[in-house]
Computed example of a mutant assay.
Amino acid sequence: MKQRGKLSWSNSVPIVIGIKPHLVNKIGGKAVLWVIMLLSFVGFSQNEELFKEGNDLYNNGEYQEAVEKYLQISENGQHSAALYYNLGNGYYKLNQIAPSIYYYEKALLLKPNDADVKNNLQFAKNMTIDAIEELPQTGIDKIVNNMLGTFSYATWGVLSIAFMILFVLAFLLYYFSSYHTKKRLYFALSILCVIIALTSLGFAYHQYGVAQKNNPAIIFAAETSVMSEPNMGSGEIFQLHEGTKVNVLDQLGEWKKIKLDDGKVGWLPSSELKEIKDF
């Protein structure tokens, strides 16, 4: 498993917001901004150095030390698909499947279509014990879900805006064109663009709703009992093992209600799992 050698931060340099002009002037605005920029640059440089040190340790087979370097970057509040991908590789080499899957899944949140992450994630999943089968879908549902899942809601939103711009351009060409043949062509093109734009907007809205409802987590306990109610006195429904992915539906005190891909639902202690969307 090859490590990523370059970081592309998703949240590396803080954005200065909420500072009122008169307050900036009062405390020496330019000096403050320069200090903030300098601290941001220093922090970024330190993380880059930690990342390089982690890669060198990994390539030398010192996986635990490499993981510790990467974790220092994560503890600094930085989020990057490259960082989480490398963490996943490090834990995989240490045969720690739950954290390996956990960090691969975090990397996919930032880069959903990354082929390397998907490939390594599948290797890690092959080492889990639980075999969870997804609920069967009808042919139409499967086609629709595959189409919607082609892009994230952000990408569908961008496509919607792009085709709306194309619609405006095509309509202007139709309006100012003096040839009937071209006017018909531009009119048809404008109608097609607005249809695609509205469809993409609908897909973006649907995907956003799905993303908001989806709260995935990874089981970290070697073995845990899923209960029918949020207390140890209730009956055990089934057992799960480390590395299994679940969806968190609700929380009550120190218990979380989870759902599997096969539709099973139950409660387990919050300490037994880690939510992926924790940044």
Rank of each mutant, 00 (worst) to 15 (best):
I237T: 03
L252R: 13
T244I: 08
S225R: 07
N247S: 14
K257Y: 07
W267I: 05
A211E: 13
G243A: 11
E242L: 03
N231F: 10
I237M: 10
Q212N: 13
K213Q: 15
G266D: 01
S270G: 14
G266E: 04
E254N: 15
K245M: 13
P216G: 12
S271H: 11
V226A: 04
E272H: 11
I219N: 02
V210I: 15
G235H: 07
S271D: 13
G235T: 11
M232L: 13
W267M: 01
P230S: 08
V246I: 15
D261S: 14
M232P: 00
G243Q: 06
S271P: 00
E236W: 00
K264S: 12
E254M: 09
E254Q: 15
V265D: 08
G209W: 12
L249V: 13
S228W: 02
F220H: 08
E229Y: 09
L273N: 03
S234C: 05
N215K: 12
W255D: 04
S270I: 10
G233E: 12
A221E: 07
K264V: 04
S228V: 07
N215Y: 10
E242Q: 15
V248T: 10
E242C: 02
L268H: 02
E236P: 03
N214K: 09
L268R: 03
V265P: 05
H241G: 00
W267L: 03
K213S: 14
E229C: 04
S271Y: 12
Y208S: 09
K213M: 12
E236M: 11
S270C: 07
N231Y: 11
S270V: 08
S234H: 06
V265Q: 06
Q239A: 12
I219G: 02
M227Q: 10
K213F: 10
Q239N: 14
T244R: 05
M227G: 01
P216Q: 11
F220I: 10
G253C: 06
V226M: 04
P230V: 04
F238Y: 15
N247Y: 09
H241V: 04
E236T: 14
K245D: 08
G253R: 11
G253Y: 08
E242K: 09
N214G: 00
V248D: 08
W267A: 02
S225W: 00
A221H: 03
